[in-house]
Structure formats: structure tokens, C-alpha cells
Design a protein around this nucleic acid. Structure first.
Lengths: 248, 248
DNA sequence: GAGTAGAGATTGTTCAACAATCCTGCAAGA
DNA sequence: TCTTGCAGGATTGTTGAACAATCTCTACTC
């Protein structure tokens, strides 16, 4: 079976390299054999998408992926469904699954939701102030330190990962499983957008210090100023992404 | 989608009756043979759950449902995934799918999100006031009239359906596909909670006139007062559900 | 060159089978 | 009596093959 040929979409990816890479990640994940095969396959694909090995617009061939991931078509399709629900894949009836291509409109939509939800979480902390032990902020401290260390090493994608986990943990302060779900999806889609940035450094670097400032405001329990800072933070971040789109 | 008039059939694990009922709904939905089999199967199950034929805590047997819905196990499982994403089913590994049993904590969680999102939509309308033609409110008017008509006929489940569609259409004013998704899930879970109410009349009746009042504030473009009214509306609704739980 | 028919490829769905896991009931032992 | 352990049965998890439905691309006609 001639397996190179038409990759169907305009952008071409290094097929050999990509498959080898996928195989490596597959072996990597196979060790932690918890959960179902479908979820494991979804894990591999999720990493491949968020880390950029599968670019927006790319089509995922069922036959190809059954061979690479070593699962049956049915199981693979179940993995597709999982990722579709996270917003990392889109189904087109009778045409297949694709990595979605987000645009400026999606940036606005995502950040609108982020602002509403994240800012509300911080403002809501004021009501449960006595209930919130300082230890709850521990994960946020870890994320800030991780981002700083990664920045020193020049590992900008790792900085981005730490930044996003900071916000996920920030949302986690609300103790809402549904909010956690929603945030997971929003941040996953955000990663899709990051790939339009030519230089990840400029995308992530400014927010290391701002996350730290935000954390200090939270530790001081000055939730009003923290909420304001977070709001402006998200406005600026949105502007940065939109500018990157225009300069693309 | 239409009238929920004939439903009822007070809860009973009457197996024969339930299967016959499911078969009826299946034939009902089979007519609109749009889209995939999985989505059609999901439609049937969704109605069965929201209308109370499948109670919270009930397990859905794969073998039984493949016979009733006349789809293969794989397709049925895909339907399960769709409903799982909507929050209408939960998976337990190697044990099967169940209709979730929500409690007071879920009520608080759901209403917290509803308040944040819906109130923000209304407040956000102020910024795009000139852009919002009155025709955008047409669906809301329809929903109010539908609810009023259903109330006159004593069809309280239909009143509930119209009320919920009112809020879905309210969210729709924001033109955010992600917000629509989230709302769909929140409202679906809310229907799960409605079944704890012994008398659907007391659950839905008070909100007909309040939806109308809200609509009038929107038509007058008094978004600030509309947002305040909506906020109080949701607080009261939450209290009503929590009271029903205590009285259960 | 534009439009159309058909071949090939891909997805949608079904079926049957087996493996893995969970639940039930019963018997043995303290 | 209570607990523990072990079959046995039932259900879910996963696979592979097969066929139908649909899309895409090529080649042909005009």
C-alpha cells in the first residue's frame, strides 16, 4: 500500500517523522496502562495535537492511526469522540476527523469565556475567605516556579504549559467539577491557537511575572485587586494573540 | 421538542411498560432520519431520560437497548458517549452506563455557573445595544407564549420545557457557540434534577411571569435591571430546588 | 475548457467472537 | 454469626472482518 501520496490538505507534514514520533509517544503512554484503550489512544493524540505534531487543518486517517496506535477502528473512533468533545478534533460527516483551524473569532469567544469564569472565581474567593487555607495556593506556587525555571532554560513551550496549569489550578479553587471540565476544554482549544505564534517566547514570557504578581495578590487575600489584575491580564493576552493573527 | 403532555407514567421499574414506551419513542424519532444512527439513538435516550422514563441511578443495559433501538452495540456505545458528554449519563469502567444521581451539591454547582454565565450575557448586551435588533428577541417571545399556553392547559412538563428553551435562547443572544454548548449541558443536567420535585407545577409556574418580566426589561433595553432581575430569578429558583431536596 | 460519469478510497454501521472485569451465591473456616 | 475465598455467570471492553453509503479525483465527452 503506497502510504505517502496525497495528504489531502494543503499543508504537508513530515509523514515519516510524524509516525515515528507518534510511535514513541505511544510506547511512552502504554506503560501507565490504567483506564481503557480508547482513553490511552486519546492521550497520545491529545499530546500530538497540543504539542503541534498534528497541525490545525490536518486530517486524521482512521486506517493509518489504527496501525500506529495499534487499536481497532472502533476503539479509535471512540478516542476521536473523546477528543471531539474536548474541542481538539472536529467531525465532518462522511469525510473524517480534522484538527480544527481556529480564527480570530474563536480567540474572542474563548477569551470572553475565560474572563467571565476566571474573574468570577477570584471574586468569589472573597466570600469564602476564612475557608481558604494558604495551602490551597500551593499548586499555584509550584506552577510559577516551574515556569520561571523553564524560562531560564529557554524552554518556552514548557513555560506555556506551566502558565496554563496555573490557570487551571486557579479555577480549581472554586471546587466545581463542571467548571474544571469547561476550563479543560477552553485551555485545550487555546493550545490550538498558540501554534499560530511564530515565536513562543513572546507569547508566554510576559505572563510569568504577571502570574507571580497575581499569586501575591491572592496570598495577600486582596481578591478585588487580584480580579482586576486577572481581567487586564486576559485582555492583554487576547490582544497579543489577535496581533499575532494579523501579523501572520 | 414538542408536547410532553402524555408522558407521566409514574416511576416504576415496570420492564414491559418501559420497553414498550422506548419502542414508541424510537418509531417517533425514526422519521427524521437525518444525521447518523448514533445521534438518532441518542435522541431517543435523551428524551427517555429527560422525561423521566429512565430514572436517576438506573443502569442502561447494552444488550437490551440494542434490541429496543435496533442499532449495533458499537453505535449504541457511540450514543452513550454523546450523552455522557451532555452529562445525562455517566460511565463506570467495566460496570456500564448509568443515569447520574445529582444532589444538593450539584444544584449549587449548576446554579453558580448559570448565574455567572446568564447574567454576564445580559450585562454584555449593553455594549452591543445598537447592534441588537428587536427581532433577536422573537424566540424569547415565542417561548413565553408557549409556556403561558401550556400552563393554561395544565401541561406543566411542557411549561418546564418552554422555560428552559427561554434561557437557552437568552444565552443565544451572545452569539457564542461555546457558550451554547455549555448551556446545553447545564440545562440537560437541570432536567435531571427536576425529577426530585413531586409537583412540577410549583417548580415551573412562578417563572412564567418572571420570564415575561425579564423579556419586557430586555425589550426596553434596560439591561442593568434585567441582569439584576435574572440574578434574583436564579437565586430563587435554586432555593426552590434545594427546598424540594430537603422535603424529599 | 467546462461539465459529467465512473472508479477508487474513506467513512458509517453491523455482526460475531473473545478477553477482561465485575457481581452473586455458596461453602469453608474462625 | 461473621468473614473470607472461590467458582460460575453475566456484562462490558476490544477486536477484526464485512458491507453499505458517501465523498474525491480522474478521465472522458462535448
Amino acid at each position: 500500500m503506497s502510504d505517502d501520496a496525497h495528504v489531502s490538505t494543503p499543508q504537508r507534514t513530515d509523514d515519516e517523522g510524524r509516525r515515528a514520533w507518534l510511535r514513541g509517544v505511544a510506547a511512552d503512554v502504554a506503560r501507565l496502562d490504567r483506564s481503557s484503550s480508547a482513553e490511552r489512544a486519546a492521550d497520545v493524540l491529545r499530546r500530538s495535537i497540543t504539542e503541534g505534531a498534528l497541525q490545525p487543518g490536518a486530517q486524521l486517517s482512521e486506517i493509518e492511526l489504527t496501525e500506529v496506535l495499534e487499536v481497532s477502528r472502533n476503539t479509535l473512533r471512540e478516542a476521536f469522540r473523546l477528543l471531539t468533545h474536548e474541542g481538539l478534533l472536529v467531525y465532518k460527516l462522511h469525510r473524517g476527523v480534522f484538527v480544527p483551524e481556529l480564527d480570530e473569532h474563536d480567540v474572542v469567544d474563548l477569551y470572553r469565556l475565560r474572563r467571565v469564569l476566571e474573574v468570577d472565581v477570584v471574586r468569589g474567593l472573597a466570600e469564602r475567605d476564612p475557608e481558604l487555607p494558604s495551602s490551597r495556593l500551593e499548586p499555584l506556587r509550584d506552577d510559577v516556579e516551574t515556569a520561571q525555571a523553564a524560562a531560564l532554560g529557554g524552554r518556552w513551550p514548557a513555560v506555556g504549559t506551566a502558565n496554563m496549569r496555573f490557570h487551571r489550578n486557579l479555577i480549581g479553587l472554586a471546587d466545581s467539577s463542571r467548571l474544571d471540565d469547561i476550563t479543560g476544554r477552553l485551555l485545550a482549544e487555546l493550545r490550538l491557537l498558540f501554534h499560530v505564534m511564530a515565536t513562543p517566547r513572546e507569547l508566554h514570557e510576559p505572563y510569568i511575572v504577571r502570574n507571580q504578581a497575581l499569586l501575591e495578590l491572592l496570598e495577600a487575600r486582596d481578591y478585588e485587586r487580584a480580579a482586576d489584575e486577572l481581567h487586564q491580564y486576559l485582555v492583554d493576552s487576547e490582544q497579543g494573540l489577535l496581533a499575532a493573527f494579523k501579523a501572520r
